[in-house]
């Protein structure tokens, strides 16, 4: 599809209302993806903010050739890459946050903080090298298909599958299991 569907919206497009809508619907997705890439909450917040501001300014360039989520995640990815390239980022050494300590902190006010096992899994996944981590989480967390991940990362579908396999193998090794996935992958 090569038309700009947003321009077809009835009564014109209220860009501010659309921004609200995008943030309510995809705010968590964008923030989480930025977090998976950086493993730092304050960076995820910065990148998520920048990504939505870019989306706001480029909303008319969105074409319905992919899902809005995939479009926003692509912007997020490019924004994160700009961060990684910056002199400031290269000077600062980041230590990944311990998921159990830093994120899901149990407290009386916060009843839901995940199980110990969930924290172990997330810690293991966030310890993966960035390329494997990103591919695995685009698939398992953001629920993108192999094709969508391939378009987003501009890698061949074969490479995406290979990274997914390697990521699973590492995690399975951590938990003492062979690298087999459940059922068929989404294509």
């Amino acid at each position: 599809m090569d038309y700009d569907y947003l321009k077809q919206m009835n009564d014109g497009l209220d860009r501010n209302a659309l921004l609200d809508e995008l943030m309510v619907t995809y705010g968590k997705e964008v923030w989480n993806y930025a977090f998976f890439l950086t493993r730092r909450r304050e960076l995820a917040e910065d990148i998520a903010q920048d990504s939505f501001i870019k989306a706001y300014h480029h909303i008319y360039s969105y074409r319905g050739d992919r899902s809005m989520k995939a479009w926003l995640l692509a912007i997020t990815r490019n924004t994160a890459r700009d961060y990684f390239k910056s002199a400031w980022f290269r000077k600062v050494q980041f230590i990944p946050e311990d998921f159990g300590q830093g994120l899901a902190r149990p407290s009386a006010e916060n009843e839901w903080f995940g199980t110990q096992r969930q924290r172990e899994i997330w810690n293991a996944v966030l310890e993966l090298p960035r390329k494997l981590r990103e591919t695995l989480l685009l698939y398992a967390h953001h629920q993108l298909s192999i094709k969508e991940i391939s378009e987003l990362t501009q890698l061949s579908e074969g490479t995406v599958k290979s990274r997914l396999f390697r990521a699973r193998a590492v995690i399975n090794r951590t938990f003492g299991k062979s690298a087999v996935s459940e059922g068929r992958d989404r294509t």
């Binding site: 609200d20 705010g27 923030w31 995940g114 096992r117 899994i121 629920q143």
Partner: peptide, 29 residues
């Protein structure tokens, strides 16, 4: 109880994208 299913949810506790984030974005725009 496959581990991959656990990745659908990110147990952030009190964190992540919030109304405050939304307001900051709107304010910056």
């Amino acid at each position: 109880d496959h581990w991959e299913k656990q990745l659908q949810q990110l147990p952030l506790g009190n964190g992540g994208f919030s109304v405050e984030s939304m307001n900051k974005i709107k304010e910056r725009i």
